[in-house]
Every structure is written in structure tokens, then in C-alpha cells.
Design a protein around this nucleic acid. Structure first.
Length: 881
RNA sequence: GGACGCGUAGCUCAGCGGGAGAGCACGCCCUUCACACGGGCGGGGUCGUAGGUUCAAUCCCUACCGCGUCCACCA
């Protein structure tokens, strides 16, 4: 006998173990099977499972399990990202906490060794956590962005792009993170709104004839000013162009130049130019041949190009010092409060400085063209579609991608320099040496942006540059499931690099999943303390409940506001399913492999067979379309509202009756339907379904193998049975009405009133006699009879073409009954009115589709018929008074 | 400043051209032999506002109001 509830705590690890042992996570080896592949968005090796991962990976697992059951060669390829900055940060912090020497004192080699040691020990927590979620990844194919194969792929890609002129070295301003002391890409810069000031400074003209006022939010940059710009058409300043101003503090002379960048509308119309520390000023400087004076050290302190008193001062201290000096010396004209956006490093959180350095760049513009075209032409389709606009928007305005990082943890750039500054870019040091012709060379100290290696993920993980069988079979991958926050970082880069190196898109479809937020819609973050730990939720409700919740709420695109209540509700759903199985067990509803539902004779069995067909079609279509919520809702409805609420209830009289043939058929049908439900539910709720699949063997024939590998239901269309459907609809409608009347009239549960049916046609008479027992038991009636007219004092209601009446005179008060009838009639009146108006409108008759007109007529008739019956009842009621 | 998305029952959301729906919450009833993590019944909505298109608009178009997100913007 099954327990009353499913116990996820003990069952889940056991079931996962069984799956993993079975080898079924690997794609089947059948050459005729259609390939289906997904590469996981590789979580950071430092990471642990958060709710966003839970959603993202649940959806991937749903798809993988679905396709596996459909018989496809389904591959879900897992792996992790080395996460350059994030990981280096974790280990550096750990070193600090342990009171160890910092990485610089340790030296590069020792530090990198230390990171690897950390990875071996505590990295990859997340892959264990994915198992708890039920992820059916092929762990035998697990990859890491820094493993040997992927590193070879990275080197090959770098060298190839360099030789094609698509990677180059350039000296220009980069976004410099003073904490990590590395360049970062535009995408890693986060604009944050902060309070600040515009300080208006007066720069005196060299010739003493006056001053020119400029404003800045960063006073310290004036130490690097090399010009003041005014608009060429600005009458106020025309005469000053070509003159010099003497910068306060440094006393340096800089020219006043005419440049259209200066906006006469802003501030005084004159703007200070600091080419080495501002992206716009850098361009102005180039146009006018201005010197770019770098005033900062890599950790954002003032360097030796500033007056001695200021050297070594932190940038923010320097800002104060400059302002203080301006105030004291009288060239501070105004302080204007403002709120403005300031760039911060997304990892470090410190203010980013534009900084002049040599870095490596990818010609992203050239690579973007095929990537744009592929999506325009539909070779890759986004789902929901509107994300394509976001993708295009970014790619069409793409800037060169800075890929070098001044870090130690990552792929070392395969470039070597000789003493003369010549560059040798090769896949190996030997090759570089050979190219250098024996000259002394040393490798570039920098590593590559983490996203450079993740950009190769869809093909590097499949074995590229080797021409492996996997690569051939599984590239392009079928679908990528990811969050919109990394469309630029990752999706676009994979598109560019995949197309360039494979000549084919990396994935046919990109499914953008929602962002999980807390119940009030706020982004979950540790600092807000509103994070929901998926593992705690799994502990509390089981993995299936969490998975079902995330699947059901993953309506395309939108934010998911996760409430615990919801998860609890779907845990209850699992219990409902469990108890349905328990009921089947108690009633000896055993699986019979030779049973063919096509031969079912009982109406309920023919009906549930059709419902199973319909649900299987709905779920299949929904999963094909990544409409996960539709799939979940269809399953929920089928299991609870159809199978449990009606089918099992309707089956009870048969199962406890004497008609042995009907009983046997119903037992088999119930078991068959439960099996269909288990299969359809398995992708979303793998644990409980697998457990039931196995447990049902305790009271019936053992199923053939594990449910994870069972064939996806492909039921014949002939299972649909409109006649049975109509009959059950009639039956459940009638029972529903009886219950409603009882409830409204406060008929006590113990009362067993008589139900009569008058004015019934042959169909209804036949149905009545076939389902008499059901109507009696589910309606808690004394009996059901046909009658000429409703008995005295019985409460009537409409049952199709007939009038039904419940003999509960003793519970009825006339006023209440009159009110009930009035209300019903009013409802029909509204219907009659609406449809009459339509049909009286010649334009409607002329222009609406014939089917719509016909439907309107039918509705009108139906409402009129129902109204007539109720009016008759009302008249009878009046005659009693 | 540019772009995208969203405003439907108390809450969270589905529906997106011809009958306003689900789950939860709420109210009443039920220790009915699978399940109280349950069963039955019910109340609750001018589908953001104003125009337009249409025989017909929650659904399409326009404007506006409100909310959210991304990109750009450190004179």
C-alpha cells in the first residue's frame, strides 16, 4: 500500500542515483534518432544555485527530458565557467581572510596554482546542486572553460582572428577598474545615479584680459587639461580662440580651441578638455593634436605628472584638495548640485576611470554583420520574439570589444613580444619562437575576458577544433535557454563567433526566460535579504513542486514574482496525483500491457481516453513551442480537474459494482490513464512520477524500464470520442446543477431527495438510465425518475432540452426560490438581449462570418428555451401562493 | 535622450477581434470508505484613461496617464 504522501527527501536522491547509474543522461546511440542538444549556460565555478538558475535549468531539463522521451538523441551538455574576475576576487579575499600574503607578493604562478586548488576543493558546488534539482545533464561530457580542450579552442580562435585582422592591439581609452587594476569592457560598466556637483572654475587668460569659466564634476582632471574648447559659432568666445589660458594649480598654458563638441547651451559654453581621462575629450584631443596627459596611477592615485604636493594622493582626496585650493585662491565661481550617472565596475563597485592603455580588441563590427543577418533571416529565432530588437539594437551600434584583462586567472593571451616591440601571435610558444627567428621573446602578461571563452561554448564543448562526432551531430544546438541580462554579454558573442568559425548559427532558437523576483517584485539580492534559496525550497516542498511552480510561472518573458504559497500549492498537486495512484492501487487498477483503450465500451472510459489524447496533444504542442506555462496548466487541469475530480468519481460506482466486464475495463483504463499522466508529467515532475511508475509495480506488472526513458505518449486521433464527450458533459452538468441547488437551498447532506426530469428527449432518457447510479451517488439523491412535470414544490433547473427538478419542498422558502428564478432569468435575458440586437443589425448579418451568425442564433434559441422553462416554474410557484 | 515591456477579480497572472478565465486569498457547507497538502458550492472585474478603425474591441491603431527594464549621457 502506498503511503499517504510522497516523501521527496528520501526518494529524490535514490531516484537521481538510479538515473545517473542507468547512463540514460547520455544521448541514445541510435544514428536514426533526431539530435536534440542544449548547452548549459555555464554557471560560474564560484557560484551556488540561486533561484534564477533553478528556473533556467528546470526549463532546460523539461525540454531535455521531453525530447529524450520522444526518442530523440537528447544531449544536455553541462559545464562551468572559470569566471575570471569573480573567481580571482573570491580567492584573493580568502587569502586576505587567512592573513596570507596578497597575490602580488605570491607571484603569478603560485597564485594561479592556489586558484586551481580552490577550484578542486570548493568549486563546482553548483553541479551538485543541479543534481538536487533533477537536472538530467550528461555529466560524462561536462566541460570547464579552462580545461585543456577549451583552452586550445581559445588559442586557435585568437590566433585565427588576429591573422584575419579581426583582433588587433590598440592604445586608446579603456574603462579602467582601479580596484582590480584591469581594463573591462563597456558591458561590465554599470551606470549608477549619484549625487554630485558641478564645480565652475575660472581659468584666467594668459594675457590677463579676462577669464573663461568651465564646469566639471571631476575637478582633479584639470591637472590633465590640455585645452579649453568653445563652439566655433559661439560669438561670446570667437575672439578668444587661439589664445591661451593659464591653468590654476599647475600653471600650465593651454590653448582655447574651436570644436563643435562644445555645446553653447550647456554651462558657460566653454568646456575643459582632458584627453587622457574622458572619452569625448579624447576625440577632441585627436582632432586638435592635443597632448594626452595621464595623471593617474593604475590604482587611481595622482602620478608624477602633477605638482609634487599632490602626488600619491587618492583621486577623491585630490578632488577635495583642488576644490579647497580653488576656493582659497578665488577661482571657484559656483557650486551647482546635481544628480548624474557615474560609471562603476559591475564586480568591484568602484568608480571606473577612462584610462589610456594598450589593450587587445576584437573588431566586433565586422563579426556582427553575419550575426545580425542570421537573426534577420530567421536562422536563429528568439522566443519571445521581441528580444530580437534588443539584440539588433546592440549589435548595430557595437563598439570594438576590449578583450584583454590585467588579471591572472584566465586564458593567457597567446601573443609574445620581442625587445623591439614586435608581436608574435601563435598557438604555442614554440611557434612564436620560430616566428621570432631566435630573438628573445616574452608572453603577454594579460588574460582574456571570460566572455571570450564562453563565446565559443556551443562548439568548443563539442570538441572543436577537432572534428568530433559530437560536433557533427549536435552543432548547431537546438535551443539556448538563458536570461535577457546576458543577451549582449553572451548570446550575441556566441552568434558572432559561432557563425565565424562554424559557418552556421550556434542555436536554432534562443528562449529568453523570465527574471525571478521576490513576492513584491523586487530583484532578489543578498543585500536586500530577500533571496529565496532554491535548495531550502527543495527541502521544504520537494524538487518537483519547485520545478512545477517555475514552469507554470514561466509565462514568456515576464518577471516571475515568486510566492511560497504557490510552491505549496503545487506540492499539494503532487500529493493529489499520489493519492490518485493510491486510489488506483486500492481498486486494483493494474497496468495491463495488452490492454487497448481503443476497445473501451464504457462511456467514462471512452471519454477519459479522449481527454488523455487532447491533453497529450496540448502538452506536446506547448513544449515544442517552449510555452512551458501552457504545458503545466494543461497537466494540472487534466490530473486534478479531469482525472481526479470527475473520472475517478465517475468510475467509483463501476469499480464497486457487479458488472465484471465493465469493472475490468475501467480498472485497465484507469491504470492506463494514470500511466499517460505520469509520462506527460515526467519532464516537469520527474521524481514523483518516476517513483509512482515504479511503485505501481507493487500492485501490477512491472513497467518496462525507467520512466525517464519511456516513450512519449503518441495517441491516435481515433481516441477522440465526441459522443462520449457530449454525454459526460451532460452528466457532469446535471450533477453540478444538483449540487448547486442543494448548496444554495441549504439542503443538509443527509437529505436524499428525488430528482425528476421532464420533457427529456430520447438521448437524455438513454443517458439517464445509463448513469442513474452515478447521478444518484454524486448528487446524493434518493432516486432519479422521468416525470410528466416537476412535482409540487420541487426546485426546477434547466438540463439541456429538459427540465430537471429537485424535490426539496421542505427546504424551500418561496421568496428565496422566486429570487433564485428571477436571477437566473435575468441572466438569460441579458443573453437574449445581446444576441437579438446583433441579429437585428443588418450590417452584422451582411458582414459577419456565417458561422458567427449561426452561433449567435443558436445562443439566442438556447437562452430563450432556458428562460421559458424557468418562467414556467415561476408561474407554478405563483399558483402555489 | 533612444528602445523595449507592462497596466484584466483582494494578490499573482493567463486570454489578445465575436460567450471575461485560472491559482491563491475570501465566504458558506462537509470527519462521503484516494487525498483536510482534501471534497462541494459561492461572492468578487466600467479588462489604466480618451479618441479612432470595425457589423463587432479587453484584444487592432493613436494619444495620454501610471509602473518597470535596458542602452546612451560624469561641461
Amino acid at each position: 500500500m502506498l503511503e499517504k504522501t510522497f516523501d521527496p527527501k528520501t526518494a529524490e536522491p535514490r531516484l537521481y542515483e538510479a538515473w545517473e547509474q542507468s547512463g540514460l543522461f547520455s544521448p541514445r546511440d541510435d544514428a536514426s534518432a533526431a539530435p536534440f542538444s542544449i548547452v548549459i549556460p555555464p554557471p560560474n565555478v564560484t557560484g551556488s544555485l540561486h533561484i534564477g538558475h533553478a528556473l533556467n535549468n528546470t526549463l532546460q531539463d523539461v525540454l531535455t527530458r521531453f525530447h529524450r522521451m520522444k526518442g530523440d538523441a537528447a544531449l544536455w551538455l553541462p559545464g562551468m565557467d572559470h569566471a575570471g574576475i569573480a573567481t580571482q576576487m573570491v580567492v584573493e579575499r580568502q587569502l586576505a581572510a587567512e592573513g596570507n600574503v596578497g597575490r602580488r607578493d605570491m607571484g603569478r604562478e603560485a597564485f594561479v596554482e592556489r586558484v586551481w586548488a580552490w577550484k578542486a576543493e570548493s568549486g563546482g558546488t553548483i553541479t551538485r546542486q543541479l543534481r538536487r534539482l533533477g537536472a538530467s545533464c550528461d555529466w560524462s561530457r561536462e566541460r570547464f572553460t579552462l580545461d585543456e580542450g577549451l583552452s586550445a579552442a581559445v588559442r586557435k580562435v585568437f590566433v585565427t582572428l588576429y591573422k584575419q585582422g579581426l583582433i588587433y592591439r590598440d592604445k586608446r581609452l579603456v574603462n579602467w577598474d582601479p580596484q582590480f587594476q584591469t581594463a573591462i569592457s563597456d558591458l561590465e560598466v554599470e551606470q549608477r545615479e549619484v549625487d554630485g556637483n558641478y564645480w565652475h572654475f575660472a581659468y584666467p587668460l594668459e594675457d590677463g584680459s579676462g577669464e573663461i569659466v568651465v564646469a566639471t564634476t571631476r575637478p582633479e582632471t584639470m591637472l590633465g587639461d590640455t585645452a579649453v574648447a568653445v563652439h566655433p559659432d559661439d560669438e561670446r568666445y570667437k575672439a578668444l580662440v587661439g589664445k591661451n589660458v593659464r591653468l590654476p594649480v599647475t600653471g600650465r598654458l593651454v590653448p582655447i580651441v574651436a570644436d563643435e563638441y562644445a555645446d553653447p547651451e550647456k554651462g558657460s559654453g566653454a568646456v575643459k578638455i582632458t584627453p587622457a581621462h574622458d572619452f569625448n575629450d579624447f576625440q577632441v584631443g585627436k582632432r586638435h593634436g592635443l597632448e594626452a596627459i595621464n595623471i593617474l596611477t593604475p590604482d587611481a592615485k595622482l602620478n608624477d605628472s602633477v605638482p609634487e604636493a599632490l602626488r600619491g594622493m587618492d583621486r577623491f582626496a585630490a578632488r577635495k584638495a583642488i576644490v579647497a585650493q580653488a576656493e582659497e585662491e578665488g577661482w571657484l565661481r559656483e557650486i551647482e548640485k546635481t544628480r548624474h550617472m557615474v560609471p562603476h565596475g559591475d564586480r568591484s563597485g568602484v568608480v571606473i576611470e577612462p584610462y589610456l592603455t594598450d589593450q587587445w580588441y576584437v573588431d566586433a563590427h565586422t563579426l556582427s554583420l553575419p550575426a545580425i543577418k542570421a537573426v534577420e533571416e530567421g536562422a536563429t529565432v528568439f522566443e519571445p520574439r521581441h528580444w530580437e530588437k534588443t539584440y539588433f539594437e546592440w549589435l548595430r551600434n557595437i563598439e570594438p570589444w576590449c578583450i584583454s584583462r590585467q588579471l591572472w586567472w584566465g586564458h593567457r593571451i597567446p601573443a609574445w613580444f620581442d625587445a623591439d616591440g614586435n608581436i608574435y601571435v601563435e598557438e604555442t610558444e614554440q611557434a612564436a619562437r620560430a616566428a621570432a627567428g631566435g630573438k628573445e621573446i616574452s608572453q603577454d602578461e594579460d588574460v582574456l575576458d571570460t566572455w571570450f571563452s564562453s563565446g565559443l561554448w556551443p562548439f568548443s564543448t563539442l570538441g572543436w577544433p577537432e572534428e568530433t562526432a559530437d560536433l557533427k551531430r549536435f552543432y548547431p544546438t537546438s535551443v539556448l535557454v538563458t536570461g535577457f541580462d546576458i543577451i549582449f554579454f553572451w548570446v550575441a558573442r556566441m552568434m558572432m563567433l559561432g557563425l565565424h568559425f562554424m559557418g552556421e548559427v550556434p542555436f536554432r532558437k534562443v528562449f529568453i526566460n523570465a527574471l525571478v523576483r521576490d513576492a513584491s517584485g523586487a530583484k532578489m539580492s543578498k543585500s536586500k535579504g530577500n533571496v529565496m534559496d532554491p535548495l531550502e525550497l527543495v527541502d521544504e516542498f520537494g524538487a518537483d513542486a519547485l520545478r512545477f511552480t517555475l514552469t507554470a510561472m514561466s509565462g514568456q518573458g515576464r518577471d516571475i514574482k515568486l510566492q511560497k504559497q504557490r510552491i505549496e500549492g503545487y506540492r499539494n498537486f503532487g500529493t493529489k496525483l499520489w493519492n490518485a495512484a493510491r486510489f488506483c492501487q486500492m481498486n486494483e487498477c493494474v497496468r495491463d500491457p495488452s490492454f487497448d483503450p481503443a476497445g473501451a465500451k464504457q462511456t467514462v472510459n471512452r471519454w477519459i481516453r479522449g481527454e488523455a489524447l487532447e491533453t497529450s496533444l496540448e502538452v506536446t504542442a506547448a513544449l515544442e513551442a517552449c510555452a512551458f506555462d501552457d504545458a503545466a496548466n494543461a497537466l494540472y487541469r487534466f490530473v486534478w480537474n479531469v482525472f481526479c475530480d470527475w473520472y475517478l468519481e465517475l468510475a467509483k460506482p463501476i469499480l464497486s459494482g457487479d458488472d465484471e466486464a465493465a469493472k475490468a475495463e475501467t480498472r485497465h483504463t484507469a491504470a492506463w490513464t494514470l500511466d499517460v499522466a505520469l509520462k506527460l508529467l515526467h519532464p516537469v515532475m520527474p521524481f514523483i512520477t518516476e517513483e509512482l511508475w515504479d511503485k505501481t509495480a507493487e500492485f501490477g506488472p512491472k513497467p518496462d524500464g525507467l520512466l525517464i526513458a519511456a516513450a512519449w505518449p503518441a495517441l491516435p486521433d481515433s481516441y477522440a470520442d465526441p459522443a462520449a464527450e457530449a454525454e459526460i458533459e451532460w452528466l457532469t452538468g446535471l450533477i453540478g446543477e444538483v449540487r448547486a441547488v442543494r448548496s444554495e437551498m441549504n439542503v443538509p447532506p443527509s437529505a436524499r431527495p428525488l430528482l425528476t426530469l421532464s420533457g427529456a428527449n430520447d438521448d437524455s432518457r438513454a443517458r439517464l438510465s445509463r448513469h442513474r447510479d452515478l447521478i444518484v451517488s454524486l448528487g446524493r439523491l434518493g432516486d432519479v425518475q422521468e416525470a410528466q412535470a416537476a412535482p409540487q414544490g420541487a426546485v426546477p433547473f434547466v438540463a439541456g432540452e429538459a427540465t430537471a427538478a429537485l424535490a426539496i419542498a421542505q427546504f424551500v422558502d418561496l421568496a428565496g426560490e422566486r429570487a433564485r428564478l428571477d436571477k437566473e432569468i435575468a441572466g438569460h435575458d441579458a443573453e437574449i438581449d445581446r444576441n437579438t440586437r446583433k441579429l437585428d443589425n443588418p450590417d452584422f448579418l451582411a458582414r459577419a462570418k456565417e458561422a458567427v451568425v449561426e452561433e449567435t442564433r443558436e445562443k439566442l434559441q438556447e437562452a430563450q428555451g432556458a428562460k421559458a422553462k424557468l418562467q414556467a416554474a415561476l408561474a407554478r410557484l405563483a399558483s402555489l401562493e
